[in-house]
Amino acid sequence: MLHIVNKSPLTSNTLESCLNTATGGDILLIEVGVYAVTRGTAVEAKLRAAMGKFRVHVLMPDLDARGLGDRLVEGVLPVDYAGFVELAASNKTCQSWL
């Protein structure tokens, strides 16, 4: 299934809650959630560990807007809006971690 996270990993426990609950599949980071996939943050290790279990995607227009498009953790899969739709369509269910 697809898990969508739109909260900052550094000021909210949303991503953590998602990672602790979800069993596998796709995770997509959007909006303020995209900070989770930038290099050098305090949550980078946690993210890297999760990447063994999940396919982690990021909505690039949101990362570019925040000036961090060039700091993507390697292995994270960049998607555009069409890719977002594809992810939503190809998964049977979707949980938005609001």
Binding site: P61, D62, D64, A65, G67, L68, G69, D70
Partner: peptide, 11 residues
């Protein structure tokens, strides 16, 4: 942060 490019999110 330097280098913010918001065209893609139309903001």
């Amino acid at each position: 942060k330097k280098g913010q490019q918001t065209k893609g999110i139309e903001t």
